[in-house]
Simulated scan of single mutants.
Amino acid sequence: MPSLADYPITRKWPPRNPDAIQLYSLPTPNGVKVSIALEEVGLPYDAHLVNFATNDQTSPEFLSLNPNNKIPAIIDPHGPGGVPLALFESGAILIYIAEKSGKLMPEGSRWQVLQWLMFQMGGIGPMFGQLGYFHYFAGKDISDPRPKERYRAEVERLLKVLDGALADKVWIAGDYSIADIAIGPWLRTLRDFYKAADIAGWDHLKHVPAYLDRFLARPAVQRGLLQPPRA
């Protein structure tokens, strides 16, 4: 039967607890989705820092687990049938954690949870990230205003969609779920890291700001935001 030792990535990042889920990540909006979910459901995990400053994500060991060289990725030594499972893509990992634990996928709301998870994966993540590039990172030095405005307008639109959906809800799919865990870190990054909330109509939103505050008030969220610890 395969074991953790069969995965080349474990030679670069040796497991501290071979019975725990091995998480290879960085505390970015996509990375902390998984650590927050693991904290919420109480599954043991080893959090290994994939350091972009030293290009860990392009190392042969990491590429052996995720050929797309993106974080996060996991190996569960006790996957389906007791066989180790390697998995990348944050949305897929969130679904796996929910199904493995029986938590964060409220009964009767599966498809609502998944639709809002896909809303984050296909809309919020890519569009917020592009606005962050043009507003906060190197793209801010591009003189042509059209790229930034394209993404600013789309982020504003997405926030309005989310705001409307939250008008009669505490959490986006009813009860707290992996959809909230996917969305919350990106809202936090837009507001606190990219410093782009003011240009995307944040002050005109009725429900999103309080939703983010509720999310950040959860103890498991606060713990997960710190994983893996930066060196």
Results as ranks from 00 to 15, higher is better:
P2R: 14
P2C: 05
S3Q: 11
S3P: 00
L4S: 08
K12A: 04
W13V: 01
P14W: 07
R16Y: 00
P18I: 06
L23C: 01
Y24M: 02
Y24N: 02
S25I: 00
T28K: 03
P29Q: 11
P29A: 15
V32F: 01
K33W: 13
S35K: 04
A37S: 05
V41Q: 03
N51R: 00
A53L: 04
S59V: 03
F62G: 01
L63G: 12
L65W: 06
K70E: 01
K70H: 00
A73K: 06
D76S: 07
P80Y: 05
G82Q: 04
V83Y: 09
V83G: 08
P84N: 00
I93Q: 08
I97D: 01
I97G: 03
P106A: 09
P106G: 06
G108E: 10
S109W: 03
W111E: 13
W111I: 03
L114T: 07
L114K: 11
Q115R: 15
F119W: 15
M121L: 14
G123E: 11
G123V: 08
F134T: 02
A138M: 13
A138P: 13
G139L: 06
D144R: 04
P147S: 14
P147G: 15
P147N: 15
K148Y: 10
A153L: 12
L158W: 08
V161M: 12
V161S: 09
G164F: 14
A165G: 09
A167T: 02
D168Q: 10
K169E: 00
V170D: 14
D175P: 09
Y176A: 05
D180C: 13
P185N: 12
R188D: 03
T189G: 00
D192G: 07
K195Y: 10
A196Y: 04
A196S: 09
A196P: 05
A197T: 05
D203S: 15
D203V: 04
K206P: 00
H207M: 07
V208L: 07
V208P: 01
V208F: 09
R214I: 10
R214G: 13
V221G: 13
R223W: 05
G224E: 03
A231K: 07
